[in-house]
């Protein structure tokens, strides 16, 4: 059996997965996320599930669980309807440690920050999120320094953002420094519940980065992968955000 790894955090696949087309969405034990693994790997898993899932609850698949729900990860994601209420999937938000869709916390998700130095991608993500009405307000920042300023201003104005999507490689102040600064500000302002961070970057998740995520707390990572197409990247990110907040 081929071992599969979460493309978001490189953990081995442990939980449920969903298949459609050439993409596989994986919820892994560490990050609760995961995005389109290679088609060849998807084919292997699809064959495994096709031959075994009709007779088993998935435990026979070893580290790979049973298929529970199909998820499309394509540029047409914005046309997708609401999640199937019959699905028995555990909400990704619970695994990821982020506020679940039904909680009061989620209702407070008024503001999201998109921090990305690639102008086109930033604008696409901002437009997609605005169109989908997932948040009341989408604020975009082109580097870590302008984000820290906007974040401090937001807290000073009494508005605690619901989510921060952070690129890592950025000029002036990179995403990791910005996250450290963010946590320092929260500590100084006695904010007990940390604003969730979703790192969205080309960086490969190694042990030091995983340790960094643990240190930062309430943070998850999605790898951009090698796809340089801003529209596809924006759609992928939107798909994850929709799953995170149950949109």
């Amino acid at each position: 059996m081929e071992t599969s790894y979460c493309p978001a955090c490189d953990q081995q696949v442990e939980q449920d997965l969903s298949l459609e087309g050439t993409y596989v969405l994986i919820g892994c034990g560490l990050c609760g996320l995961g995005l389109g693994i290679k088609p060849a790997t998807a084919d292997v898993i699809r064959r495994m599930t096709a031959s075994e899932s009709s007779e088993t609850d998935g435990s026979a698949l070893g580290r790979v669980g049973v298929v529970k729900r199909q998820v499309t990860l394509s540029p047409a994601v914005e046309k997708r309807g609401p999640p199937d209420p019959r699905s028995d999937d555990q909400p990704v938000t619970e695994r990821a440690g982020l506020p679940s869709s039904g909680s009061k916390e989620l209702r407070k998700m008024k503001r999201v920050f998109i921090v990305e130095d690639a102008n086109l991608l930033r604008q696409i993500v901002k437009d997609l999120l605005s169109e989908r009405n997932l948040f009341d307000e989408v604020i975009d920042c082109e580097d870590g320094e302008s984000f820290v300023e906007a974040y401090a201003k937001s807290l000073a104005d009494g508005i605690r953002p619901g989510l921060v999507v952070l690129d890592i490689n950025m000029p002036r102040l990179d995403g990791m420094d910005a996250a450290l600064a963010m946590r320092a500000i929260e500590t100084a302002m006695d904010i007990k519940r940390r604003t969730p961070i979703l790192f969205f970057s080309t960086r490969v998740s190694d042990d030091s980065f995983k340790a960094f995520l643990r240190e930062i707390g309430s943070a998850r990572y999605i790898r951009k992968g090698e796809d340089g197409d801003s529209e596809r990247l924006g759609s992928r990110l939107l798909a994850v955000l929709e799953r995170l907040i149950g949109g």
């Binding site: 320094e145 984000f147 300023e149 401090a152 201003k153 807290l155 420094d177 910005a178 320092a184 500000i185």
Partner: peptide, 17 residues
């Protein structure tokens, strides 16, 4: 957050506040 990066963050906070 070594010196210049910490300083950038401090300046950003000052502007934010």
């Amino acid at each position: 957050l070594p010196s210049t990066r910490a300083a950038r963050a401090m300046r950003a906070v000052e502007r934010g506040f």
